[in-house]
Structure formats: C-alpha cells, structure tokens
C-alpha cells in the first residue's frame, strides 16, 4: 500500500488517538511540573484614634492578570512529586530514621496517600489476577467435562458478571453484603455480632473488593480457556491415555502446555484492567480503607473545592510509569520477535 493511501485511510483514526491520547499524556506531564498561582493579597493598615488594624484582601484583578500571563501556574519542577501527597521523600526519610522496626516503618508509610493507593492497587492486581486465571481454568475444565447441553446456559450466565458495568456490579454486591443486606445480615446472625460490618474493617474491605474483582473478571478467563480447550489436539490426549496417563496427568502434561500462550494473553489483559481499578471503590464506598491510584487522581480532581491539577498530573505520571513497568516484559518480547522476523 502506498504511503499516501495509507495516510488517507488511517488519518481519522490516527488523529483522534494523537489528539486525545498522545497530547493529553504530554500535557499531563507539563501540568504536573507547575503549581497554582498563590492569590495576590493586599495588606492595608487602617489607623484610627483607637489604634491600627491590618486587613487583608485578595486582589482579584492582580490574581487574574497573573493567571492570564501564565495559565498553567508557576513552574514548580519536580516538587509536586516529592511533596507529602506523593512520594513524600522528606517524611519517608524521617520515618525511616525514627522507626526501630520495618513494621513500624510500613505503618508510617501507609499514612501517605500515594503509598496507600499503591499498596492497595498492587495487592489487588497481584491477588485478583492469579485467582481469576486459576478459577477460570477450573470452570473451563469443569464445563468441558459436562454434556454439551450445559454449555450454552453456562456461558450465558457467566457473561453477565463480566459485561455488567463495574459500578453497577459492585453496587449490586454492595447492597447484598451491607449490614442490612441479605449476606451481611446473615453473617451478623451467624457470628451473633450486630456490629459486624464488612465496611468497618480494612481487611474485610480489601477482601470484599478482591472478591468482587474475581467475580467480575473470572468469566473472561473462563471463556478464553474454554475456547482454547476445544482446540486441544485429541490425538495427543488419546496417545497419553493409551500410555496410561491419568486424567490429572493428561491435564498437567498435555492441556496446560497447550493453553500457555492463552494464559499469557489473559494475564496481560488482566494486569492492565486490574491496575486501573476504580469503580468498585466508589460502588462499595470503600475509600476509607482502600484507595487505588485511579481513585486518587479522581479525588484530586473532584473532591477538593477546586481541582488540584498539579497533584492529579503527578499521580497520573506515576500511574503511567507503573503501567510501563507492567508492560515492559511484553514490549521487549514483541521487539525481539519483530527483529528476528526482519533478520530472516
């Protein structure tokens, strides 16, 4: 295909991606290096026979002028990254010196919003992903062992938790596990503890969110694995059976190696999706005990009186950096494959 024709065909697609994905990433970075202007304040002293009084007022005109001159704000370098909302280098160094054990140090670290969010996001990503892979594989093998008539209904029912909007899905579960909901109330009765609430304890909140994550994503790995199981070569299975392999051995030595590329694909998608976990925290109203990086950005932009663009920008850059680390192995592999292909 000629360059000019290629450009004509792909121009609309490339330009929206460039304008609304590539440029925003750059602008987020620039944003993170600036800080809002301080309001210009005029101090006036009024003296009367009873004494002098100083009054302060915001000079709106001068503030507006300053803003017009540099709409991004004052250049701040990487200070936003190192302040206490983010990496809090000074405070962390202080905490390291003053703590006598590692547990005390991690507890202190947990007071800073970015470390809090990172700890939940990473735990969530690395707990939910293996569970989803493993349970999805089990259900796929299970369905594969059942007569064909179960296949359609099972897939239909399984698709629902995955396809439903994350916010809606988490609300549906939240209303059930809430203190007055069917599961929450039953648990209270079982443990005979009327104050038992999944929301009140940090550990239970984390578990609840991860159970939701597994519920939401397991269908994806189940369906991909199930499709993969249909392509397992029957001759190899039969040969293994004749050689005396048990059912378990057949799965271990024939099926699993065959499904390995699929497992890598699923892992990649799951890592990307779990790393951006956000909606369940809103749905379960879990922000008191569990915050994710995406939630933190949302909070910078939304919850304060005026949006903290620099904080949101810095957190976004940290997130992008995290994604880059997650993707690095895949990118290196693709690059190697590509080079090999070009050599040959």
């Amino acid at each position: 295909m000629k360059h000019s024709t290629f450009l004509l065909f792909s121009l609309p697609s490339l330009s929206v991606m460039f304008l609304f994905i590539a440029i925003p990433i750059v602008s987020v970075f620039i944003q993170s290096l600036h800080i809002e202007h301080k309001q210009v304040i005029i101090v006036t002293e009024n003296c009367d026979p009873f004494g002098c009084e100083t009054t302060t007022a915001v000079d709106t005109e001068a503030s507006a002028k300053l803003k017009e001159k540099a709409p991004l704000g004052k250049f701040n370098g990487f200070k936003t990254y190192s302040n206490r909302m983010h990496f809090a280098f000074d405070e962390v160094g202080e905490a390291w010196k003053s703590s006598d054990s590692f547990t005390v140090f991690t507890k202190k670290l947990y007071n800073y919003p970015l470390y809090r969010a990172l700890s939940f996001t990473l735990t969530y990503t690395f707990v939910v992903t293996p569970f989803v892979l493993f349970l999805g594989f089990l259900v796929a093998v299970g369905v594969n062992n059942l007569p064909k008539m179960f296949k359609g209904p099972t897939i239909f029912a399984s698709l629902l938790p995955m396809i439903v909007t994350p916010l809606v899905g988490s609300l549906i579960l939240f209303w059930m596990v809430d203190g007055d909901g069917v599961i929450g109330a039953t648990l209270q009765k079982i443990f005979n503890d009327n104050s038992l609430s999944l929301k009140a304890s940090p550990v239970l909140t984390w578990i609840m969110l991860m159970v939701y994550g597994i519920w939401h994503l397991m269908p994806f790995s189940f369906i991909v694995f199930y499709a993969g199981l249909q392509t397992v070569p029957q001759e190899t299975i039969e040969a293994a059976t004749i050689d005396g392999a048990s059912k378990f051995q057949r799965i271990r030595h024939v099926v699993i190696p065959h499904l390995m590329p699929l497992a890598i694909f699923i892992t990649l998608i799951l890592l990307m999706d779990n790393f951006r976990v956000f909606e369940p925290i809103i749905g379960f109203r879990a922000e008191a005990h569990a915050t994710s990086i995406s939630w933190l950005i949302w909070n910078h932009l939304r919850e304060s009186a005026y949006p903290l663009y620099n904080a949101a920008g810095a957190t976004s850059m940290v997130t992008i950096f995290g994604v880059a680390i997650l993707l690095l192995p895949v990118l290196i592999r693709t690059w190697r494959d590509f080079k090999e292909k070009n050599k040959g």
Binding site: M272, I293, S294, I297, G313, S316, T319, V323
Partner: peptide
Amino acid sequence: AMPHMTLISG
C-alpha cells in the same frame, strides 16, 4: 493499557 483516569486530568 493507559488507565483512562490518567488522560482525564489532561
């Protein structure tokens, strides 16, 4: 792979 929230602030 970009979390959508990172783009929003831009």
